[in-house]
């Protein structure tokens, strides 16, 4: 269960410096389920999240990660508690709506990818200062996925049809041949592990919903105002150099796979080159209405192929139409931010000097296979009377379309 606690502060005449402005006004309290049946599952997730907040987040120093004020696991009661900085009231509702799943706008997705690239880049640059033992906590074995597939197929074939189920079957084959064989050779860093809308909180700083639309991709004016607000807000938290990383190699843009098109969305963040060389005036000082942007729920953070997170967001949080319209921009936003963050302030550039977008596209394509199979193990016996099956089926179809567009089987 997750609670927001509104705080009031006692007047402290002896210490006027501790004004209300520098004290939190709200806290988030996460309480981990302590029922015996769930304890074995939740305890490692709780420990993983606490490790992230206590030991990893301070090293990464990202403004987009909420502060953790307190964490404790009571072994006897089997109960874990985490107190976090409030990530704000989301400008999106998140989760399942009446007619489908809520998705990110194109502009929100660009921001999310940029911040994700920053997280990955910093984790690569600061790798030696982070805990070594961070293997994926809940890695699904091929046996588990194979075992789950028959009931997944039985549940969803009537709603998805043979063609879509066929994509899942091919993904099952490709999991061993493509993903498991290659994943350890892909760009390695910290992986959020569950990087989708719901774990990315966009919110107005004053806590209002501010009429930011919940529709995907169709109110770009509002989204751009929103984007510029987030940029200002995020920029306040970053003091990194935005100068060149010294890489003079010409960037090579991958030949776009089928479905990847140069986008039509205008963004104000295109002032960096493909080499990650930023233009001098990257962070606008013009104050705009501020928005906050937080990544939450670090229960599945691990070391691994970072482009898994990119594939996860592209598959799970954007409509097919929005994704097809801007996915090259999204990958480019991730790539640029990752290179900048990996290079900033470090003598050694940890990303391979010859890494360009082309291998990134290949790694995302392979990661799609792993991402869609998350659906199989989590939705194999899905039955929930309160949730429209048709909406979930629409989501599963959207997820499967990544496999085709990104030619994940080749």
């Amino acid at each position: 269960a997750v609670y927001r606690i509104h705080l009031t502060h006692r007047q402290d005449d002896n210490n006027p410096a501790r004004s209300a402005a520098v004290q939190p006004a709200t806290l988030i309290m996460k309480v981990i389920d302590s029922s015996p049946g769930n304890r074995a599952v939740f305890k490692p997730l709780h420990e993983r999240e606490v490790l992230f907040y206590n030991e990893i987040a301070p090293v990464l120093d990202l403004a987009s990660v909420p502060k953790c004020y307190y964490a404790h696991f009571d072994e006897e009661a089997g109960k874990g508690t985490i107190l976090l900085e409030d990530a704000g009231k989301p400008t999106h509702k998140g989760g399942l709506q009446k007619d489908g799943f809520e998705t990110l706008t194109a502009s929100q997705a660009v921001l999310a990818m940029t911040e994700l690239g920053r997280f990955h880049g910093r984790s690569i640059a600061l790798s030696s200062k982070l805990p070594r033992d961070l293997s994926r906590p809940l890695d699904r074995s091929i046996e588990e996925i194979r075992a789950a597939f028959p009931s997944f197929k039985k549940t969803w074939t009537p709603l998805l049809g043979e063609e879509v189920i066929g994509r899942y079957e091919r993904a099952l084959e490709a999991y061993e041949k493509v993903w498991l064989v290659q994943k350890d050779t892909f760009v390695q860093g910290l992986v959020h592990g569950d990087y989708r809308l719901g774990n990315i909180i966009f919110s107005a700083e004053d806590g209002q919903r501010d009429n930011v639309p919940d529709r995907d991709g169709d109110d770009l004016d509002n989204a751009h105002a929103f984007e510029s607000g987030v940029k200002t807000s995020v920029a306040r938290g970053y003091q990194e150099a935005t100068t060149s990383n010294g890489d003079s190699q010409p960037g090579t843009v991958a030949k776009s796979p089928k479905g990847l098109v140069t986008p039509g969305i205008p963004t104000t963040s295109n002032d960096t080159t493909i080499n990650g060389n930023a233009s001098p005036n990257n962070h606008p000082n013009t104050p705009t209405k501020l928005f906050t942007f937080k990544h939450v729920d670090w229960q599945t953070v691990s070391r691994g192929p970072v482009l898994f997170d990119v594939a996860y967001l592209l598959s799970m949080s954007i409509t097919t139409e929005t994704r097809r319209g801007c996915e090259f921009d999204l990958v480019h936003a991730w790539y640029t931010a990752c290179r900048e963050a990996a290079g900033a302030g470090n003598d050694q550039f940890f990303l391979s000097a010859d890494l360009n977008i082309s291998p990134c596209v290949r790694e995302i394509s392979a990661a799609c296979v792993a991402v869609v199979l998350v659906s199989v193990t989590t939705m194999n016996n899905f039955r929930a009377p309160e949730v429209p099956m048709r909406a979930v089926a629409g989501k599963l179809r959207t997820v499967s379309e990544m496999l085709v567009d990104w030619r994940s089987f080749e």
Partner: peptide, 21 residues
């Protein structure tokens, strides 16, 4: 545990139940 229960238990009214998932 509901927010109402927590508020009553603590004698406050500043806790709301939210979902970050």
């Amino acid at each position: 545990i509901t927010a109402e229960w927590l508020n009553a238990k603590l004698g406050i009214n500043t806790i709301e139940h939210i979902s970050l998932q």
